[in-house]
Design a protein around this nucleic acid. Sequence first.
DNA 1: TAACAACCTACCAAATTAGTAGGGAATATT
DNA 2: AATATTCCCTACTAATTTGGTAGGTTGTTA
Lengths: 138, 138
Amino acid sequence: MLSKKTRYAFRALSYLAENYGKGPLLISNISTEKRIPLKFLENILNELKKADLLESKKGKGGGYSLRISPAKISLATVIRVINGPIALLPCVSLNFYEKCEDCNEENCGLRKMMTITRDATLKILERKTLQDIVLAAI
Amino acid sequence: MLSKKTRYAFRALSYLAENYGKGPLLISNISTEKRIPLKFLENILNELKKADLLESKKGKGGGYSLRISPAKISLATVIRVINGPIALLPCVSLNFYEKCEDCNEENCGLRKMMTITRDATLKILERKTLQDIVLAAI
DNA sequence: TAACAACCTACCAAATTAGTAGGGAATATT
DNA sequence: AATATTCCCTACTAATTTGGTAGGTTGTTA
């Protein structure tokens, strides 16, 4: 399950995607428009910025905007930044790999199944983008 | 990510699958053999029993065994029993559905993407079974 | 009736999640 | 230069979930 924080992130990013190219949006604007707690949203947007998905400007006329086109930001990227690993086991994660103590990975049956699962999941999450979210919304 | 508890469950179930048809195994045996904390394992096996995946017998000669063939227990079933929902959003879950407050589901773009993702993931997890785990382990 | 082995209720510590508080730093306008 | 604006940063907190443990109870078999 995605955390509430991740769902907030997607809501904010969708809004930013809808307004891509129209200049920066204010945190406070996004917060009231999308009903996301202001201070919490501040953290989220800041993390997305540090991950190079957003750019920001301070002072009057400032705010946040997408750094690149919504068509180039995959759902997998967003999930990894805010939610963490996509794989179901650490020993199968591409971006958050951790060795497991109790199985020798080469011949672990569960690991093999989870690798297949990861690939199937990633095939979608890597291909689908913020643009797809916006376009899929009626 | 699957919880540690779920990983323990898979380890125990794999062991039970390997010994399918050879009579019940003791909790204490599984615990030492698979290095799973005894009392925690007790809970886990009991939950799996309540979900009708296992059967148990008390007293001497007792223990736990799979109720049905390992080939008929899917990974999805196990995950749902111990870990919970497989979908990434509650509003997209088949077995743990919950309405989301903030989107009208029909035209929520994120929801549509997460439905596709769920289907891709389930296609694997519903098909793969405990037997596949055992067979895939060298 | 003794031993055995699963079952049940309740508790607990650590980690994670979902925020909040309050001020600081950069920018733009006057 | 002063002020308003807006993002940025550190730290704290409450609630929930996770990963267990303790200790007795019930059912089974020999």
